[in-house]
Write a protein that binds this DNA or RNA. Structure first.
Lengths: 154, 154
DNA sequence: CACAATTAGTTTGCGCACAATGTAATATCA
DNA sequence: TGATATTACATTGTGCGCAAACTAATTGTG
């Protein structure tokens, strides 16, 4: 049984912070993605958006926002950059002038081929068993879903 | 047994990305910290630095960098902001003029009291068992340590 | 001792992440 | 139908996160 030092609460120790572990692991993972994404000229968040579009084209910003879990203030500049690289176009919806309809260009659709190798390459770089990775993903999802901003469904 | 659609590789599906789960969970956690840290006028990374200093005062930027896992290019502006709030001072080392010695001011030391309630408050906001949280932290650490940038000890 | 290599930290530039505010289009309702 | 509320995005401002380039001090090495 470890007794606390008189100094104060053990809870304020940085190595006890789940958030710090998650925070630095996520940052490190994105750093690991960087060299793999560089040939595609994509950042990780841009890659996330492309993943969504490769899965389902012609979607609204809101739909992208829900799938990527990035808010519109973050997405808008990302989408503009992707448009600048002529990977996507941002048309207005005919039926609802407020909405944008994001859709892939030919170049954007073709980029998918180059991206196919990335998940495999990442798996090699991440030194974890498939089961550990699954469990980690599962727990991260659980944490995410359990946070007040999500449980707060009025 | 689920058969892949002719459409292409399943690996490019966003909901299969461990990184995305980690990424959004970490961001969401930091958002959850925000209202708790606001009374202390600290951002999450600033809080991380303060945690380190409360644990051990009078340290170099390099030491802080290792403990917070933030690089010096990130730390320098953070430290300047903390100095701007008069929570810390950034003196130069006598024995090695290259080094900074970061140390808490009286105000910085006193802020610790206000911070004591934060870990407990976060635990309440995170809807996970202590064991799940421990496991999540453990797996995140495992992932972090297993990435090439760390295993690459020449 | 001179001089190259290393180390500690800073600066610069870019791209998020996000709260807050704004704007325009649509939906709701009196 | 006309006022009001809501919705979908865009904009602004601040603070990271980090690669790359830079500065200055220290440590080798010949």
């Amino acid at each position: 049984m470890t007794t606390n030092k008189a100094r104060g609460s053990t809870h304020l120790q940085i190595d006890q912070q789940i958030c710090h572990s998650l925070y630095s692991a996520a940052n490190a993972l994105v750093r690991t993605y960087r060299p793999l994404l560089e040939p595609l000229d994509l950042t990780y968040p841009q890659y996330l958006v492309m993943l969504c579009l490769w899965q389902q084209d012609q979607v609204s910003v809101k739909a992208l926002s829900q799938q990527t879990r990035l808010d519109s203030g973050t997405l808008t500049p990302i989408l503009k950059r992707l448009e600048g690289k002529t990977l996507i176009e941002r048309k207005r919806s005919r039926t609802d002038e407020r909405q944008r309809v994001i859709h892939l260009s030919k170049k954007g659709r073709e980029l998918r081929t180059q991206a196919e190798s990335i998940p495999g390459a990442m798996t090699c770089l991440v030194d974890m068993s498939a089961e550990q990775a699954r469990e980690l993903k599962h727990l991260a999802e659980l944490l995410y879903a359990g946070l007040p901003e999500h449980t707060h469904r009025t």
